[in-house]
Simulated assay, not measured.
Amino acid sequence: MSSYDGGCAHVHTHADHDPIDNHTCHCSVCKRVTGQPTTHVVFFKHGDLAAEGGPMKRVPFNDQNPDGPLEICICEECGTPIMLDDKQGRIRAVVPNLMGFSAEMPATYHAFYDPATGVPKPDDGRPVYEGLRPDFVWPQPS
């Protein structure tokens, strides 16, 4: 077990439990939201990642599915994205390079790779899946 810290000058996020999933995401939603060709995403059980401090604005993660389960929490003071919050209470997720995390949390696989995009299949030795890793089980809501 390790300790993970992130956030901004106004909102502090922290977890004292290891992540339950850690992947490089290739999905179109992550590309659209972050502007990155791939996105390093880390899932924590919902109750394992806490946020303290200033108020946060919540916006749908997927603007094309605004009623979906994930919301982006953004610091109201500085506009920094803080975390993704699952309205169903299963997970909270962070994008370490955008959400102030410096701890080593290397991705263990590639998720949501779609060969139809024309992007070459990753060949860095990590497994590549069309979705989340096959053994991933969504945690029960907290």
Rank of each mutant, 00 (worst) to 15 (best):
P37Q: 07
F44H: 05
K45R: 10
P115N: 14
Y129A: 04
P81T: 13
C27L: 15
G89W: 01
V42Q: 06
D63Q: 06
R126W: 10
C78V: 03
H23V: 12
G131K: 11
T108Y: 05
G47D: 15
P127E: 14
P66T: 02
I91M: 02
L98Y: 02
T24M: 07
P37M: 11
F61K: 09
E104K: 04
H23T: 08
V95K: 00
R58Y: 13
R32V: 07
V94K: 01
G89N: 03
R58W: 10
S2P: 04
H10Y: 03
T39I: 09
L70K: 05
T108E: 09
F136M: 02
D135V: 08
L98S: 01
G79Q: 10
P37E: 07
L132R: 11
K57F: 15
A50G: 05
H12C: 15
G53C: 12
P134F: 05
L70I: 08
C78H: 06
K87R: 07
A107C: 06
N65F: 13
R92H: 04
W138K: 02
G53D: 08
H23A: 08
C27W: 15
M105F: 09
C78L: 03
A116I: 11
D18G: 04
T34C: 11
V42L: 08
Q64K: 09
E104W: 09
V59C: 14
L84S: 02
D135I: 10
K31W: 04
K121D: 09
Q88Y: 14
V95H: 00
H40P: 06
C78N: 09
V29K: 03
D5N: 14
C78A: 10
L49C: 08
P122I: 11
T34R: 11
G100R: 00
F61T: 04
R92W: 02
F61M: 08
D85K: 07
H10S: 02
H17L: 14
A116S: 09
D63G: 11
F112W: 10
T80N: 13
D48V: 12
R90V: 10
A51Q: 08
K87P: 00
P81C: 15
H17I: 05
F61I: 11
C78S: 08
H40L: 11
K45Y: 04
Y113N: 00
K31Y: 04
L49Q: 03
K45I: 06
D123E: 05
Q88H: 12
H23F: 14
C8F: 01
T117G: 06
R126V: 12
Q36W: 11
A103N: 11
T39S: 13
C73Y: 07
P139T: 02
C30T: 05
D86S: 03
H17Q: 15
A15S: 15
P139E: 07
P120K: 12
S102W: 13
C8P: 02
